[in-house]
Amino acid sequence: MSEATATPPAGLNADMEEAGFYHECALNGSWTASRLAMGGLSFLFGSFLFAYFYLRSLNSGGRWEGSGYHAPSMIMGTVMMLMVLISAGINYAAVQRIKAGHKKAWQIGGVIALLLGLATISMQIFELLNLPFYPASSGFASVFVGFYPVFIIVVLSAMIWLETLLARSRFIPGIAFVEQPPTYEEAFVVQRFQASVSGFTAIWNYLAVIAILFWFLFYVI
């Protein structure tokens, strides 16, 4: 077997070997998990997408929007969408900085991204409580009132994740991002942190795309 013929690196012991193996598993797992989560979330949001187009095309009772329909505030909707977009953009840019070892830059970017995300959530809740239509007044209103709480919960979960990353980054010396830390244990911690950051970045970028998509559906067309 090919596995059995390789020569072991010098100075390797069984515990180190095993730690390395599961470390590698965890790094790959982090990548898989974030992509899989995107798949599951796509089906969740896809249900609302389906509901949107289904009810829109059926227009049952002539009440997809109804004759006395008031659109939700375009300004608020656009601002909220942009905040998610900017938050994702800042995080993405900050992640490029941390790869170059600028931990502080990422931390600042992360905090801004976090605050923008939380601001979006607050603004979204405010909008839901002050809508110009009742939830049952039309199909559009139903999908609108139904979709955004789900989106809020998902964004909130992402923000909690970002917060844990920020909290964790405090204990990782910035130098560790550019230089091999003295022990494997420390190297593992840094690498896992990086894997988690990259997983988060992927999900948060994905959610920004979702935000744009539904903004387009609810506010533009």
Partner: peptide
């Protein structure tokens, strides 16, 4: 009621 015209 018919599609409403007022606000909540």
């Amino acid at each position: 009621p018919g599609p409403q015209t007022g606000t909540p």
